[in-house]
Structure formats: structure tokens, C-alpha cells
Simulated scan of single mutants.
Amino acid sequence: MSADHECCGVPLERYQLSRADHRRQQEAVGVAAWVAEQVAKAPRMSDEQLETVMELLREPGPPVEEMTWRVRLYCGHIREVTSPRSWLRPYQGVSGQEPCVDRGLDPATIVAFEPLASDSGPGKLA
């Protein structure tokens, strides 16, 4: 599959946070707090239900070609993450967040990114 993977905020080391970045981070923190509150209210699963869920999670899915990205988090840390190669950005279709264990920031939104490489064999991106 050939895709033109996107870049945003390159070079990552000099990226300056925008108002939109601050707003996205604030929204992500609010959503995470709401989800934690809802989970705390939820009834506990029975042992049978829990075992069924665990069994489903253990089943391997089909192999997926992956893409490696270099991302800058809201907190300023830069790290590498992977996503399916078909995605044009590291968080396509999902939240665009990674926990930052160094700062204890969870979630930390991805504010800038660049593609590095894929596992598709010859012709990998450099």
C-alpha cells in the first residue's frame, strides 16, 4: 500500500504550542477524568464475564504492517510510536494521545509528528 504520510510541526524540537494544542490537551484531560468517573461507577464484572473478555483479548488478530513515527507530546517530550501503516498520521481515527510517564501526564496529546519508517520491507521510509 502506498500512502503519503503527513508531517506536522517539523522540526519537533522547535515546535511551539498553539492555542489549539492547549485546548486539545484540556479536553483530553477532561475526557479522561469523565471516563475514570464512569468506570468507577460501573458494576464489577463477574469472574465468568472477566474470563470471557480476557479470552477475547488473548486471540491474535491478523498481522498489520506498522509505521514508526517520531512524535512530540504536549509536555515537550519526543518519542517514537507505531501505528498501522495505512494511517496517514500516528493517531488517525483515535485520540492522538500517549501517556508521558516522565511527567506523569496521562493523557498527553500529540502536538507534532513525522514519519520515520515502516515494517514493509524494501523501500522503507527513512
Rank of each mutant, 00 (worst) to 15 (best):
G61S: 13
P63M: 10
A108E: 11
R89K: 11
M67D: 01
H5G: 02
W87D: 01
V10S: 06
A42I: 04
E37D: 12
E48H: 09
G9D: 03
E6R: 10
R44Y: 07
V39Y: 01
L17E: 00
I110R: 01
C75N: 10
C7Q: 15
L105I: 08
V111K: 01
R79N: 04
S118N: 14
D119M: 05
P99F: 09
L57N: 08
A32S: 12
V31L: 15
G121H: 04
R79E: 09
R103V: 06
L116V: 15
K124E: 12
Q16L: 04
A28G: 11
L88G: 12
S118G: 15
M1G: 13
A112R: 06
G104S: 11
V31A: 12
R89H: 08
A42F: 06
Y15A: 05
V53E: 10
V53W: 08
S118L: 03
R70T: 12
V35A: 00
D4P: 02
Q92S: 07
C8P: 00
Q25C: 08
P99L: 09
L88E: 15
A33M: 15
I78F: 10
R103L: 09
T52W: 05
F113P: 01
A32E: 07
V71E: 12
L57A: 07
P62M: 06
L105G: 01
S83W: 00
E55C: 00
E48V: 10
E51M: 14
E59C: 06
T68V: 14
P62F: 04
T109Q: 13
F113Y: 12
S95T: 11
G104R: 11
V101M: 14
K41A: 09
P84I: 02
M54N: 13
A33T: 14
C8V: 07
Y74P: 01
E98N: 08
Y91S: 09
E98C: 11
K41C: 03
V39Q: 08
T68Y: 07
L116A: 04
P107M: 04
G104V: 08
K41D: 04
A28C: 09
A40P: 04
E13S: 14
G30E: 13
E55A: 11
H22N: 13
D106G: 13
E59S: 05
P122A: 15
T109A: 12
T109W: 04
E66W: 03
R44A: 13
V81I: 14
M1Q: 05
A32I: 01
R44F: 06
R72T: 09
R89M: 03
G104C: 10
A36K: 13
S95A: 15
